[in-house]
């Protein structure tokens, strides 16, 4: 916080030996950083901290209660065990799908971001618009359109059947493939944009220097481009992994009963079954798991050390 306080101002040259009262102008300005922070902090307190505390409390309610009869708070830690027991399959499946999604997004997004940033030239902005444009339509509509693309009578399935990559009764919808394809499609821009941002800052003279020092293309990529773009990689993977682990739209629309993710479970526990304790316990578990994974990831892939 101290760093945020104004240390220099019009009267900032006050010498350390003379503990005089700071000039009135400076004293008045001391509260300014706090005032600037206040709206954001208040927002977080009301819309993040309070709900999270509530959620955590709800996860410890006695599961015997109900909306109509009321819930009793009695530290029912067993909710966590029950939630895991009932839904560990969907829980692990979500993390697995999110991981695959992230890897595929990185594999697809990196070359794309690289091409836009380094080779894009005057088409750069147009290409960026191309990445972002689908966002102008609703998430739900875009996911529905995948239903049409992957439909049993659609062109993709027809082609795969023709190429004998799918059996005559094969299908893509309501399979893992469709769910992950939907996730990759929907979260790809979250990978591309941070990657683009860090690759765009890349000084191409460094690549020339690497070539002058007898690095081939592979080594100069691994020793120059990749390390310099690592902040983008970290940001992109986080922005892809976190929302896809909690997503339920893709699983609901493109998946079947055996490909549901934890988001669908939480959603149905809260809104259909009205089982708040278990739903809250699942939400807290998901939040904590992602927090731990992300912390470990960021600290090991810390962009400072990896060169």
């Amino acid at each position: 916080m101290a760093a945020l306080l104004p240390t220099a101002s019009a009267g900032g040259a006050v010498s350390a030996e003379v503990p005089v009262e700071p000039p009135a102008g400076m004293r008045r300005r001391r509260w300014i950083p706090y005032a600037l922070l206040a709206p954001g902090m208040l927002w977080l307190a009301v819309f993040f901290v309070y709900p999270v505390v509530q959620l955590f409390m709800a996860s410890l309610w006695n599961p015997a209660g109900s909306i109509e009869t009321g819930y009793v708070f009695d530290w029912s830690w067993s909710n966590y065990a029950d939630a895991w027991e009932m839904f560990h399959v969907q829980f692990l499946r979500s993390l697995w799908y999110a991981l695959i999604t992230t890897v595929i997004c990185l594999a697809l997004g990196y070359p794309l971001a690289y091409a836009i940033a380094i080779k894009g030239g005057r088409w750069k902005n147009l290409m960026l618009v191309g990445v972002i444009a689908p966002f102008f339509t609703s998430y739900l509509v875009r996911t529905y359109s995948w239903k049409a693309i992957l439909s049993d009578s659609g062109p993709v399935v027809d082609f795969l059947k023709w190429a004998h990559l799918l059996g005559p009764d094969g299908r893509l919808l309501a399979t893992e493939f469709a769910v992950i394809a939907g996730l990759v499609y929907n979260f790809l821009p979250f990978m591309v944009l941070p990657l683009y941002a860090s690759l765009d800052k890349l000084d191409v003279r460094l690549l020339e220097a690497a070539r002058d020092l007898y690095h081939g293309p592979v080594r100069s990529f691994l020793r120059v481009t990749l390390p310099l773009s690592l902040p983008g990689v970290v940001a992109g993977t986080l922005l892809t992994f976190i929302p896809s682990a909690g997503d339920y739209v893709n699983a609901n629309l493109l998946g079947g009963p055996n490909t549901q993710m934890i988001g669908s479970v939480i959603q149905s526990r809260f809104l259909v079954v009205n089982d708040y304790p278990i739903a809250s316990a699942l939400s807290v578990m998901l939040m904590v798991t992602i927090l731990v994974l992300v912390t470990v990831y960021v600290s090991t892939a810390g962009t400072d050390e990896v060169v």
Partner: peptide
């Protein structure tokens, strides 16, 4: 779910509606 639940929980506390 979060938004809805947040609202519901915040107001619900541990008191039933019935």
């Amino acid at each position: 779910a979060f938004a809805v639940a947040g609202g519901a929980l915040a107001a619900c506390g541990t008191k039933g509606t019935n």
